[in-house]
Simulated scan of single mutants.
Amino acid sequence: MKEGKQADWKKFAATGAAAFCLGLGVQSSIVAPHSNVLPTVKDAALSSSKPANSFVESDSALEPSEVRTINLFRENTPSVVFISTFTERQDFFTLDMEEIPQGTGSGFVWDKEGHIVTNFHVIRSANSAQVALSDAKGKQTLYKATLTGVDPDKDIAVLKIEAPPAALRPIDVGTSADLLVGQTALAIGNPFGLDHSLTIGVVSGLGRETKSPTGRPISNVIQTDAAINPGNSGGALLNSQGKLIGMNTAIFSPSGANSGVGFAIPVDTIKYVVKKLITDGSQITRPVIGISFLDSEQTRGLGLPQGVLVLDVPKGSPAAQAGLRGTVRTFRGIEVGDIIVGLDSVDIRKEGDLFAALEPHKPGDVVELRVKRGTEDGKERRREEVSRTRSDFAI
């Protein structure tokens, strides 16, 4: 496979931070664990204390299902890595640049070329990273990682380490197309900065939607009740055969605590994005129309009709060229902007519908937006055509 160009750590650290500021406000919290947080409660997890190739034989003291789970864990721990990220700071006295620990996370070995897959939010604000790789006996070796590419909209990043092929154990990649609610799900990662740990649950939901660090929704997400704690981000979600079905990415917790429903990016999405990043490098470009908008829940709270309320239309954006109007404050009060209710033949009820309708297109395509304009008694208009080109104002 053709090697892509090495990405720039500083470029994507800045991009990620800016994109995160564009995220939508929500009443509940999405906790995307990546920082090195000390545990306050004991996590019910299985930790590896024997070499990874020391498999358990059938034993009367253990149930067959337990033996299978223990062996599956030990077989896959060399494929799951521990990632430490760093930021740069200039020493006040010597003016030398020094690396400051920024956070930790998990990842997994993708191929024998040394590509490591993790979450974008794990390395989002980092200037550098190192990967701890375990050998067959459980001994860890540290490797400095370079950044191959990122896809913030899908919360996926690809790193690369210069490790001997014999030391690399690529994870066994499965599929997420045939998953069923109720089947076993096993999450392997490094929660709280601890050594490889295993939590077990089931696939508790399919086709879920969560937000990426850019605020753009990630669709077809796997929901699981396998515990996902800080440091688990970027780790592997496996099925009962030990095949990768997803990448642990976040937990949903109304209280903001690190407990609740876990989410994982499906492996079929990962396969497509990782292949593009390794081949083309840098960053995947998606079409935008160049607006900022109000969260659909907040829009409904204002008593406005279904659709995406346009808050701002930056000057020079494709949306501005098409004549879309944003929401403005006047001496009479708030003047509501256009409400997008359709893109081509697709009805738009919330922002997720808008992103889904844009997904099949590429930058430069022309689409037709249907909007309701408050200044014209809510009359639906069809004359706005938007030519989507690459813009700094991503919705």
Rank of each mutant, 00 (worst) to 15 (best):
M1F: 12
Q6V: 14
Q6G: 11
D8W: 06
S28I: 03
S49I: 15
N53V: 09
S58C: 03
L62V: 06
V67E: 10
R68S: 08
I70L: 13
I70G: 11
F82S: 08
I83V: 14
F86R: 08
D91K: 13
L95N: 14
I100S: 01
H115F: 01
I116K: 05
T118S: 12
T118K: 06
R124D: 11
A129S: 08
D151T: 10
K160G: 10
A177P: 04
L180Q: 11
G182M: 11
G189D: 10
F192K: 10
G193R: 01
S197C: 10
T199L: 10
G205A: 14
V221Y: 06
V221W: 02
I222P: 09
Q223I: 04
A226W: 08
N229A: 02
P230K: 06
G231L: 02
N232R: 01
S240M: 01
G242I: 05
V261K: 05
G262D: 06
Y272L: 12
Y272I: 07
K275A: 08
I278P: 05
I284L: 09
I284H: 04
T285K: 15
R286A: 04
D295N: 15
Q306V: 00
L309R: 08
S317L: 07
L324H: 01
F331T: 10
I334S: 03
I334A: 06
I334E: 09
E335V: 06
D338L: 01
A357R: 03
V367S: 09
E368I: 08
R370H: 03
G374I: 03
G374L: 09
E376V: 15
R382E: 02
E384Q: 13
A394Y: 09
A394N: 11
I395A: 13
I395E: 15
